[in-house]
Design a protein around this nucleic acid. Structure first.
Lengths: 127, 127
DNA sequence: GCAATACTTAAGCAACCTCTTGACTATTGG
DNA sequence: CCAATAGTCAAGAGGTTGCTTAAGTATTGC
């Protein structure tokens, strides 16, 4: 049972490669055999297999062999896990901006309504 | 001007490391100086700097030096870009499932209501 | 059975990543 | 001015990645 953080490592690392993202993008449209996945890719079959192993180790892809054909499909939970981490960060960032807005509204020392990006380099930093 | 795909490479690669995710998680709660970021991390300052360079090259972090202090903050657009890629895949996957449901509903050959995960290995594969 | 198909394994290699240590520069407080 | 602070640069050890080629193993169609 891998740690949550190790799993995120593997998922993000797996997605950090154009070839592997292409494989994922193909598989969200339906299952496919290894050779079918390899078809549009400019590399040897073993190279594709290695990419698939990375995706499978990350839990992004599941595969099953029937006869001589290995059929691959996505495991959307891993994708979701990465999404949740990112959304968590974005949420945290937005909450902070809202809080900052509130502080500015309570005590409008100069002007109000100024919020293009995360300004104010050093307002609060207790941690 | 880096290609979209190269940017995604760098963003996902940057996030594929627990230390760098910790830095991001710290920065979403507000800007911080390099030594402040390094404080909870079990590694040398140069190592932290290198992680920051990776984050900056990915566009996830922006930093500015004032006096002898370099202050870092998040660049949420990069985070958003990664999120959008993932959401795009999930959407594509969900659309396919919905379409499959429709097909099953139109022609209920045996039973209906069966949809725990992406079953049916080989219904359609035109591409 | 035999050839074609569809992977699979293994070895090797160049490039890259993460971290280290040691030395160095620029800024600031007293 | 001088020491402490905050960061930067450079080189290198040690491991990982992304490919390759060559040689294997099952399965399947005829």
């Amino acid at each position: 049972m891998p740690k949550h953080s190790e799993l995120l490592d593997r998922i993000f690392r797996a997605l950090a490669d154009e070839t592997r993202r292409a494989i994922v993008a193909r598989l969200v449209r339906g299952p496919a055999a290894v050779s079918r996945l390899a078809q549009p890719l400019a590399m040897s079959l073993p190279a594709v297999m290695q990419h698939l192993q990375v995706l499978e180790a990350a839990g992004l892809v599941r595969s099953e062999k029937t006869g001589r054909v290995r059929t691959c499909q996505i495991e959307p939970r891993a994708l979701r896990m990465a999404e949740e981490w990112i959304v968590g960060q974005r949420t945290s960032w937005e909450q902070r901006l809202d809080l900052l807005d509130d502080l500015l509204a309570q005590r409008p020392s100069q002007q109000s309504s100024d919020r293009p990006t995360g300004r104010n380099p050093q307002e609060e930093s207790p941690s």
